[in-house]
């Protein structure tokens, strides 16, 4: 049946309705995708080798970029916060200021953004190429679930590796702040670390932890979803990869704000 064209006065409503249906459908598909992946994660047979492969792919291969960005972020923080605090004669609080900025906020967010750029984009491109070369279809017709083999291990690997990489980012960043604050600008080592122990408590560490766990799910969920639903050849892969990186990055920042308002 062919729908009769709407009268000009009704066209904006028709467009709005079409857009709403598209949005609801897309969100439903997006949520259903995560549901299927979690279903594959929680029901046997469990696939250990694909999981280890993904931990290597997402986590281990991102170590260098995490160490590099973590170190320089800590150094920049050390430099800027030192000069700001020195105006009030409060340089002694450099350690806790650097540590709290990193542990609560910058560590989880920047580590997630870095991994999105390095591993998330590669994840989308890899799945996208598997889709357009019918490798995902091949798995399906072998009666093997692509969710179990390709998507679920990626999401679980994100869940495992993001907190670990965030912790590494924090530690290297704190050391970067130490290099600048203590070794370069002359703050005492005892003050830097001693004040840190006084002001940073477990709630701060847990805030960073929960953020990194949720970012791990968001990034792998978005990137696998975009790769899994690629269409239209090489151009489609390129478009999906860009969309995955942009959407993951935006969601990281939006979700960071919401978590920041909820968590202590």
């Amino acid at each position: 049946m062919i729908d009769a064209p709407a009268s000009p006065a009704l066209r904006p409503f028709e467009a709005l309705g079409r857009w709403t249906i598209f949005l609801v459908e897309s969100l439903g598909q997006f949520g259903g995708f995560l549901g299927q992946a979690l279903g594959a994660l929680l029901t046997p047979p469990f696939k250990l080798w694909p999981l280890l492969g993904r931990i290597n792919y997402i986590g281990f291969r991102s170590l260098l970029i995490i160490i590099l960005t973590g170190g320089f972020t800590g150094m920049v923080l050390g430099l800027q916060i030192f000069f700001t605090l020195s105006r009030f004669g409060s340089e002694a609080f450099l350690g806790p200021a650097v540590a709290l900025s990193l542990i609560r906020e910058l560590g989880p967010v920047l580590a997630a953004l870095m991994v999105t750029g390095r591993a998330g984009s590669a994840l989308t491109a890899e799945l996208g190429i598997m889709r357009i070369t019918e490798q995902i279809d091949a798995l399906t017709v072998m009666a093997l679930s692509p969710m179990r083999y390709l998507v679920a291990p990626s999401i679980l690997a994100g869940l495992i590796t993001f907190p670990m990489m965030t912790a590494l980012f924090d530690v290297v960043g704190i050391f970067g702040g130490y290099l600048v604050g203590v070794e370069l600008l002359g703050l005492s080592e005892g003050t830097y670390f001693g004040e840190m122990q006084t002001f940073v408590d477990m709630a701060d560490i847990m805030t960073g932890f929960w953020k990194s766990v949720s970012f791990g799910i968001i990034v792998t969920w978005v990137c696998t979803y975009k790769g899994f639903h690629v269409a239209h050849g090489a151009e489609g892969v390129a478009r999906a990869t860009t969309q995955a990186v942009v959407l993951s990055s935006v969601l990281i920042l939006v979700w960071d704000y919401f978590l920041g308002t909820i968590l202590p």
Binding site: I129, E134, T140, A143
Partner: peptide, 19 residues
Amino acid sequence: LDEVRKRYGVVFQGGALFD
């Protein structure tokens, strides 16, 4: 559906080999 697919073998146009 997977039970039926277990009786299948499929040769895809491009091979669809896992690269």
